[in-house]
Amino acid sequence: MIPEPKPRRPDASMTLITSMLERPLDPGYQQAADRRAAAGLPPATSTRTAVVIAMMVVTGFLFATGAQALRAAPTAAASVKSELVGRIETLQAQGQGQEATIAELRKQVSELEALALQQAGAADLTDTITQLEMFAGYTAMRGSGLTLTVGDAPSADADSDTGSRPSSGFDSGRVTSSDLQIIVNGLWGVGAEAIAINGHRLTSTAAIRFAGQAIIVDFRPLTPPYVITALGDAARMQQLFEPSFAGVYLAQLGEQFGITSELTAGDGLTVPADSLTRLTSAKPLDGGVTTRSATTGPVTSGTDGSSLGPDPGEQQGTEETTR
């Protein structure tokens, strides 16, 4: 009779994993215990020997060192980051202070202009100038209108579902610059007279762009939520905006990507002046005024001598004489 060979384990090809899972303890312990038992000693040694204690001290040291060494880098980066944040905030505060100064100076200038025009006998021009300044975003405005708040989808920070937004590379739940462009153009289209986003006036030269992850309006980065204030006939604008292309687009953004938006009408809304407005061209006014007083010809709201008027010399002269 031939002895039957020992049956092969069905998982013999996985002995590595089996031994790892079933015998995680170092086999040395069992062997040492067996040797000690054979020599007539108790199988386990004391855990209070000097070697063990020294080893535990080393282990604790290793853990503490590891924890500190591996945590040091992020804290260094964080301190740099907080310093940068502080610097940015300081500079922003400084910039706001200077914008306030600009607004104050501009008010003085317009007062002086009005005075000068009055003295020169061209008071009727003041209305024209006021209206032009209004359209140019040169003066702060106040009145009834719409407030549209647009915000990123609540899950925009997490890995949200990848939509087929044309803004590839961005989270689909984020408001993009082109969304804002479409919305703002829609608001202009339904008769808004002045628009500001997050307190920044939009003028005819203002651009809404993307820089990295931030939306830049007129070279100033904005953070969500984006509050768009549009002055005008509130009821009519709301009625027209919702079925318009921009309104439908906004509704779709909400449905498909979870972008939040809220449209409310309100009274007493304010839209600030655009502090970046500057005179880029000026031309003499033809007609009535020149006949009355030749020197009041080029009626401008010029604030700086570097304006690109067709005849800067005369313009500066005008400023002199009308004062």
Partner: peptide
């Protein structure tokens, strides 16, 4: 080190702890 420490704790509970094996492992 964590592995060695937990192995040693287990050996203590199994009653087969050996200081030399612990240090060497």
């Amino acid at each position: 080190a964590l592995d060695a420490v937990f192995g040693a704790v287990r050996a203590v509970l199994d009653g087969i702890f050996n200081d030399k094996v612990f240090v060497v492992s």
